Simulated scan of single mutants.
Amino acid sequence: MISVAVKRKSFGAQTVLQDVNFDIATDERVSIVGPSGVGKSTLLRLIAELDRDYEGQISTVKNSAVVFQEPTLLNWRDVMDNLRITTRKDDRTLENILAEVGLSDKSDMFPSQLSLGQQRRVSLARALAVNPELLILDEPFASLDDEMVDEMLALTKQVVDTRNMALLLVTHTKKEAAFLTDRQLMLGGNPATIIQ
């Protein structure tokens, strides 16, 4: 499904990633684990085709969706409008997805009226609306308290299991990686590479 062969990714004279090679099979759940600042999110952006300035080759699925660490919602639009604008899906489909992430009663609320956990659920709903083959999560549980992390982990696992999607999780927390994924890749070094 996905083949990653990044020979080099640099920002100016600084090489951030070098010789990063791995594959992800259909329906496989893989996490990339490493300390903050090592280059995990940079690698994710390459895989999601949000950054094409690198040496190497990445082949991926046509239909993937990314949930970023920050919810990036339009504060002047309610939840339903946030989903409509970005996904162009009909209201019935969006209502079903909001129910899937436990927000069926929040469709007319604005982001500022939601907790951070609820905003993260809206971001997840937005990603699910495109019915992705691959769901990419970039530190999706950062800044949440332990109880909310556990709740979001359970929800995410349920959604991925129900939809039978491939998953790529970027995290610095081994607990999250172990709960959601079958295989963990460690990113480390300077420049960073897969070290296990």
Rank of each mutant, 00 (worst) to 15 (best):
residue 84 R to P: 03
residue 138 D to M: 11
residue 162 T to V: 04
residue 185 L to G: 02
residue 134 L to Q: 08
residue 4 V to R: 03
residue 79 V to P: 03
residue 26 T to K: 15
residue 126 R to S: 09
residue 48 A to D: 01
residue 107 S to N: 05
residue 7 K to P: 02
residue 136 I to A: 01
residue 172 H to P: 05
residue 70 E to G: 05
residue 64 S to D: 07
residue 178 A to L: 13
residue 191 P to L: 06
residue 13 A to V: 15
residue 64 S to N: 11
residue 15 T to S: 15
residue 105 D to H: 12
residue 196 Q to A: 12
residue 35 P to W: 02
residue 155 L to W: 14
residue 73 L to W: 03
residue 194 I to S: 07
residue 158 Q to H: 13
residue 104 S to I: 03
residue 187 L to A: 13
residue 114 L to Q: 07
residue 196 Q to C: 05
residue 79 V to D: 10
residue 84 R to T: 10
residue 100 E to G: 06
residue 169 L to Y: 08
residue 188 G to R: 11
residue 52 R to G: 14
residue 188 G to N: 10
residue 175 K to V: 14
residue 160 V to A: 00
residue 56 G to L: 01
residue 7 K to I: 14
residue 100 E to Y: 08
residue 122 V to H: 10
residue 194 I to V: 12
residue 96 N to C: 04
residue 92 R to G: 00
residue 55 E to L: 15
residue 96 N to P: 00
residue 91 D to S: 14
residue 83 L to F: 08
residue 141 F to C: 01
residue 50 L to V: 07
residue 127 A to G: 09
residue 6 V to D: 12
residue 172 H to V: 00
residue 156 T to K: 00
residue 80 M to N: 08
residue 137 L to Y: 00
residue 143 S to E: 11
residue 151 E to M: 14
residue 58 I to G: 06
residue 145 D to I: 07
residue 2 I to A: 08
residue 151 E to P: 05
residue 156 T to W: 00
residue 173 T to D: 15
residue 10 S to T: 13
residue 113 Q to G: 08
residue 86 T to H: 02
residue 65 A to G: 11
residue 91 D to F: 11
residue 186 M to Y: 08
residue 29 R to K: 15
residue 70 E to R: 13
residue 82 N to S: 04
residue 61 V to Y: 06
residue 179 F to D: 11
residue 5 A to N: 13
residue 156 T to L: 01
residue 43 L to D: 06
residue 179 F to S: 10
residue 30 V to P: 02
residue 169 L to S: 05
residue 149 V to Y: 02
residue 54 Y to A: 06
residue 23 D to R: 13
residue 43 L to Q: 05
residue 28 E to F: 04
residue 25 A to C: 14
residue 129 A to V: 07
residue 124 L to Y: 04
residue 18 Q to C: 10
residue 152 M to I: 12
residue 133 E to I: 01
residue 46 L to K: 00
residue 145 D to G: 03
residue 42 T to M: 05
residue 95 E to Y: 14
residue 44 L to Y: 03
residue 163 R to C: 07
residue 54 Y to Q: 07
residue 114 L to S: 13
residue 96 N to E: 11
residue 91 D to C: 09
residue 70 E to L: 02
residue 161 D to C: 09
residue 159 V to L: 14
residue 5 A to I: 02
residue 132 P to I: 06
residue 196 Q to S: 14
residue 165 M to I: 03
residue 107 S to V: 03
residue 105 D to S: 12
residue 103 L to P: 08
residue 119 Q to W: 09
residue 64 S to K: 10
residue 109 M to P: 00
residue 1 M to H: 03
residue 113 Q to V: 11
residue 7 K to Q: 15
residue 158 Q to D: 14
residue 84 R to C: 09
residue 136 I to W: 04
residue 81 D to K: 13
residue 12 G to E: 03
residue 41 S to N: 10
residue 18 Q to K: 15
residue 133 E to L: 11
residue 128 L to P: 01
residue 184 Q to P: 11
residue 192 A to D: 09
residue 57 Q to M: 06
residue 144 L to E: 09
residue 85 I to L: 15
residue 147 E to Q: 15
residue 69 Q to K: 07
residue 85 I to W: 14
residue 53 D to W: 01
residue 153 L to R: 15
